[in-house]
């Protein structure tokens, strides 16, 4: 039986998006989490706007990192529990294509949504309007990269009952270069020095993970599902 790959990809994408929008609370929770975590920093440290502006890139990026880790945990879990994932693996569509579509769909409902609400947080943290474009671009590249890295961790821990702690332990060290370049791009946009270099590095990381991570995710799923 031959399967038309692009048609299959479209069907999977449609299904993922439909499932995402059928459960709006699951969609909103990471966003609310992102907002709450960013609120915690001014409460715990200091509400001085000048001080907040210095910390804003770090606060924004750490919160985005934690929020996307929280949401990536369920990427394969539901499908693995009810057997859909095994059917997908057996369907004849290359597993790499399936994980690419699933991860991209997940990014659309979590990462992209996070980018959309980020100006709200940025305003509260005193980031100037001129830096919004760079900040959103860097967050878009960063959350996509995080989705790929997180999907590797999610695929490795899919069979575990309480894998979310282990997921963070696995993904956070891998995500640290991303945090460095992302926060420095935002920081440079705020201070007005050229942020192009950091953005290029972020884009390079994004391309690297977009091309190599699907292979690792597919291999990890084969290991944990067999």
């Amino acid at each position: 039986m031959t399967v038309n790959i692009s048609a299959a990809a479209a069907v999977i994408l449609q299904r993922e998006l439909l499932l995402g929008f059928r459960r709006p609370d699951q969609l909103l929770q990471p966003l609310v989490f992102f907002l709450i975590v960013t609120t915690l920093f001014p409460l715990a440290l200091s509400a001085q706007l000048s001080l907040l502006r210095d910390m804003a890139p770090g606060v924004l990026w750490v919160s985005a990192l934690l929020a996307s880790l929280l949401s990536i945990d369920v990427l394969f879990k539901g499908d693995a529990d009810d057997g859909t994932l095994e059917q997908l693996v057996l369907s004849g569509v290359p597993l790499g294509v399936i994980v690419i579509v699933k991860t991209l769909a997940h990014w659309l409902v979590s990462g992209a949504a996070l980018v959309v609400v980020s100006p709200l947080v940025a305003m509260a943290l005193g980031i100037p309007f001129g830096a919004f474009g760079t900040m959103m671009l860097s967050l878009a590249l960063g959350t996509l990269t995080l989705s790929w890295l997180g999907a590797i961790g999610a695929a490795l821990t899919v069979g575990l009952r309480r894998g979310s702690m282990l997921l963070s332990l696995i993904v956070l060290p891998l995500a640290s270069p991303l945090l460095i370049f992302g926060a420095s791009a935002t920081d440079r946009a705020i201070t007005g020095s050229g942020s192009a270099g950091a953005l290029y590095l972020l884009a390079a990381l994004c391309v690297l993970t977009s091309t190599l991570a699907p292979l690792a995710i597919a291999a990890a799923l084969r290991i944990t599902l067999e």
């Binding site: 590797i152 696995i170 690792a216 291999a219 990890a220 290991i223 944990t224």
Partner: peptide
């Protein structure tokens, strides 16, 4: 499975 998963993570 633990062996193979750990090996994959080490390679990444």
């Amino acid at each position: 499975r633990g062996d193979r998963a750990a090996a994959l993570l080490a390679i990444v």
